[in-house]
Design a binder for these strands. Sequence first.
DNA 1: ATGACGATTTACT
DNA 2: GTAAATCGTCATA
Length: 217
Amino acid sequence: MTVLDRSAYAVPADELARSLLGCTLVRRLDDGTRLAGTIVETEAYLGVRDKAAHSKGARRTPRTEPMFGPGGTAYVFLIYGMHRCFNIAAATPGDPQAVLIRALEPVLGLSTMRAHRAQRSRAANPAALPDHLVCSGPGRLCDALGIDLGMSGLDVADRDSKIRVEQIQKASGGVPTAEIGTSSRIGVDYAEEWKDALLRFFIRGSRAVSGPASMNR
DNA sequence: ATGACGATTTACT
DNA sequence: GTAAATCGTCATA
């Protein structure tokens, strides 16, 4: 398992969103515990021109600043006053594109993930959730991995980072195109002509993919 | 200082 | 299917 190369992030967000599928998101807790999951669902936000993006029209504020940094910079934000979303900046400095990580298939630290969900979510009984639902959704995965707003701006290409991306083997081809499904993005009905753009990507057949079944074909 | 908003999740009819 | 929960952020004043 090797850390995804820094140069892999210096590409447009839709390309990065596809290549992150099948990679492993690894979280190192302060006590050294490692949590990990395979990325099975992503969304691309194309930056300045994309009306669904926080960075649309080059909107640059303290919150969105990480997206203006180099590809591989973490962007974490609070949504609806209670959930966090984890993104990775794409492209090059000054071009604020990003990829939202929407779902993981847990591979390491499942019991700790469940404990985090029990602690941070209102779910009636997280301990009874099937494995594939523990990180199935952008807010759920942040709860499970203990990702908070203070982690926005971290470098995910640094192998010592508290949050990073690894791949099984360098220069592997990644997930075959035929196994990748696409759809419009979830929750962006306000985005006018951008709301139907096919910028959501997922691994076909993975049960950990979030959203309605009709969008997962 | 204030008010409107939201890249979600959960519970309930 | 609908609705509620909940608060950091940012535009406006």
